[in-house]
C-alpha cells in the first residue's frame, strides 16, 4: 500500500501532531489528555471553593493570591481554554464519524453492556459546556450582574464569598448549578476511567479499581461543589 511506505518516513513534529489528530486513536489520546487536564482543574477548583466554609475572608484571600500572579493565572486560563476547545472539537468530530459508521441502527434493544453515563456522554458534555459559559459570565466576567464583581471585604479584597452568597441566593442559579454539576459528575464517572483505557493504561486487573476511582471522584466532586449552593439556599450561611 502507498500508505505503508509513506507512514514509515521520518516526519516532523508538526506532521506527527497532524497524524495524531487525523487518526482515530490519536484523537482519543487528545480526548484523554485534555480530559485529564480539565479533571485536574475541577478537583483544584472544588478544593478552592471549599474554603468558602472557612473564615469569612479565607476564600477572598485565596482569590487575591491567585490574581496576584498574572502570568500563572493567565497561563492556566489559556491552557484550560485550549484543553476545553480541543476536547470539545475532538469529541464532536469523533461523534460525527461514529454516526457515519453506523447509519442504520437495530430494531431490537439497547446497546449491549452500556451505562447511562456512557450513552449520554455527549449530551452531558455539551450541557456542562453551556453551563461553563454561563458560570464564567456570572462569576468571572460579570455580564449577568456587574455589581457582583464590585463587592469588597474589609481588607479591600474582592469579596468572593459575598458574591457566591448573592449569586446562589437566586434559586434558578442554584438549580442550574446543581443540575450541571450532576451532569458533569455523570460525565466524569465514565470519563475518568476512560482516560486510562484510551492511553492504554487499563487492564483486567486494574479495571475494577479504575471504575471505582471514577465513581468515587464523581461523588466527592458532586457533594463538594453542591455543598455551597445548598448551604446558601438552606440559609446556613451568615
Amino acid at each position: 500500500m502507498a500508505a505503508s511506505a509513506e507512514s514509515l518516513q521520518r516526519i516532523s513534529a508538526a506532521g506527527l501532531m497532524l497524524q495524531l489528530w487525523r487518526s482515530s486513536l490519536g484523537k482519543k489520546y487528545v480526548m484523554a489528555i485534555t480530559g485529564l487536564m480539565l479533571f485536574g482543574f475541577v478537583v483544584v477548583h472544588m478544593i478552592g471553593n471549599l474554603q468558602f466554609f472557612g473564615d469569612a475572608t479565607l476564600i477572598n484571600e485565596y482569590a487575591e493570591s491567585l490574581k496576584s500572579k498574572p502570568p500563572i493565572l493567565w497561563g492556566a486560563r489559556f491552557g484550560l481554554l485550549a484543553a476545553a476547545m480541543l476536547h470539545i472539537t475532538a469529541a464532536i468530530q469523533l461523534a460525527h464519524s461514529n454516526r457515519r459508521a453506523r447509519p442504520v441502527g437495530y430494531d431490537g434493544g439497547k446497546v449491549v453492556a452500556s451505562t447511562l453515563a456512557n450513552r449520554t456522554i455527549i449530551v452531558s458534555g455539551l450541557t456542562v459546556f453551556a453551563f461553563i459559559v454561563f458560570h464564567l459570565a456570572h462569576f468571572t466576567i460579570g455580564w449577568v450582574n456587574a455589581d457582583l464583581l464590585k463587592l469588597t471585604d474589609a481588607a479591600g479584597h474582592h469579596d468572593v464569598r459575598g458574591m457566591m452568597i448573592a449569586g446562589f441566593s437566586n434559586p434558578l442559579v442554584s438549580i442550574f448549578y446543581v443540575v450541571s454539576v450532576g451532569l458533569l459528575c455523570l460525565h466524569l464517572s465514565h470519563g475518568v476511567a476512560s482516560i486510562f483505557q484510551s492511553l492504554g493504561l487499563r487492564s483486567k486487573k486494574t479495571e475494577a479499581n479504575l471504575k471505582k476511582l471514577a465513581l468515587v471522584a464523581a461523588i466527592i466532586l458532586f457533594f463538594g461543589f453542591c455543598a455551597i449552593p445548598i448551604a446558601v439556599m438552606a440559609d446556613l450561611i451568615k
Binding site: A3, R22, S24, N98, R100, A113, T115, N118
Partner: peptide, 14 residues
C-alpha cells in the same frame, strides 16, 4: 490507518 480508511467508528470504552 486502514481501519480508519474503511470508515469504522471510534472506541468509546463501553
Amino acid at each position: 490507518g486502514q481501519m480508519d480508511a474503511e470508515g469504522f467508528g471510534n472506541c468509546t470504552n463501553i
